[in-house]
Amino acid sequence: MSISAKDVKKLREQTGAGMMDCKKALQEANGDFEEATDILRKKGQQLSEKRADREANQGLIVSRVSDDGKKAAALEINCETDFVARNDDFQDRAQQFIDIVFENEVESVDALMDIEIDGLSVSQHLKEMVGKIGEKIKISRIVFAETDGYYISYIHPGNQLGVLVEFEDAISDEKIGRNIAMQVAAMDPVAVTRDGVDSSVVEQELEIAKDQLLNEGKSEEIAEKAAQGKLRKFYEQNVLLEQKFVKDNSLTVENYLDENDTPLVKSFHRLQLGNDS
């Protein structure tokens, strides 16, 4: 059966698949658009299964915050190459997925996979993207959060790093909030305050510091005291409110917030591409 270029173009516009794939699907379906669409979807499924074991370390971090700062969401979507991540269609789909997370208040990737868009689940949409793009595509992480305080979002240029910061109350100057989000992006703190540092991390830092001092010939008593000093240094470097403010090292982050009458930070989420921690 002869397939016109007009029909191929129409199917491409409907499915986003490549021109040759659309032509072959229409030929196989004897010009039936519905059947051709099913053929393309099955092809996407097969390709998705074939690429399941491939590494997908490129992609985008995207986020969204409500106008009142009370609701926030972030998402990491991965592909195999930076070329695909820069594609307008891939970026549009990433935005569509973060909107779904935000509007449906989705709290896990598994829950997101079951939500339907235009009659297809997100999982099926991802398989169609694989069929169209030819690379492994996955959504690896999502964050959805609500607060009585205020959320600020920061996406580092290139969309490979994103931060959500929760403040204890509304903030009057979003520039200050953005500076704190940039601090989290740049300095990668482990917690907001000392109390938020996992006890196992504290024990490990003390043990490492003490062992180093003992190996240097220090006595048990001196090593014990000096290890506490090293732990304080660890806090200063890794606890957000105690860190030196990156734009003015004469201040800690807490000092900076106090000087600008800005509420303290309550929590943060930091998503870096390919880093699950």
Rank of each mutant, 00 (worst) to 15 (best):
G31N: 14
M1R: 03
V130R: 14
R64P: 06
N249P: 01
N159I: 02
D38W: 06
S4M: 11
H156T: 10
A85G: 08
K43E: 12
E205G: 06
R54Y: 04
V165G: 06
L206P: 07
R93I: 02
R51S: 08
Y235R: 01
L120F: 09
A226L: 14
K6R: 13
Q91M: 14
N104A: 10
S219H: 04
A73P: 13
G131T: 11
E254G: 08
N215Q: 15
L11V: 04
A94P: 01
N57P: 00
L264S: 14
V101K: 11
D211Y: 02
E242A: 00
S108Q: 13
N255G: 05
T147E: 08
V190Q: 06
D261R: 06
D99R: 09
E135G: 11
I115P: 00
K9F: 09
Y151K: 10
L240R: 00
S219N: 09
V65M: 15
K70H: 11
N87I: 12
K70G: 14
D195I: 14
R270P: 13
V106H: 05
R178V: 04
P189R: 02
R232W: 03
K138E: 15
S250L: 06
G149V: 12
I171G: 03
L241H: 05
I100F: 08
E55L: 15
K24S: 14
D211Q: 13
V84A: 03
E28Y: 12
E49D: 10
K10C: 00
V202S: 07
N179D: 15
N57I: 12
G69A: 05
P157L: 03
I61E: 06
L273Q: 00
C79Y: 08
K23N: 09
V184I: 03
T252M: 05
L257D: 02
N87S: 10
A72F: 14
K247S: 02
E128K: 13
V84N: 02
L241E: 03
I180R: 00
G119L: 06
N260M: 05
Y154N: 04
K43P: 10
I142C: 08
V184W: 05
L257K: 02
Q237V: 00
Q204W: 07
I142P: 07
V62Q: 09
G59K: 05
S219W: 03
L161H: 15
G158T: 04
P189A: 07
L47E: 10
A94E: 01
M1S: 07
I208A: 04
G16S: 13
K210Q: 10
I100A: 09
A36R: 08
V62C: 09
E34C: 03
T147C: 09
S2P: 06
S4K: 08
V184H: 12
E221T: 11
F97W: 13
G134S: 07
N78Q: 12
N260S: 12
Q160P: 03
Q46I: 09
A74C: 09
D169C: 04
K230H: 11
Y256D: 02
V8E: 00
I98E: 07
L251H: 12
V197T: 06
T37N: 10
F245L: 03
V84R: 03
K70P: 08
L26M: 07
M182H: 07
H156I: 08
K210I: 01
A5P: 01
K50Q: 10
K71V: 15
N57Q: 04
L126N: 03
D68C: 14
D195V: 12
T81C: 02
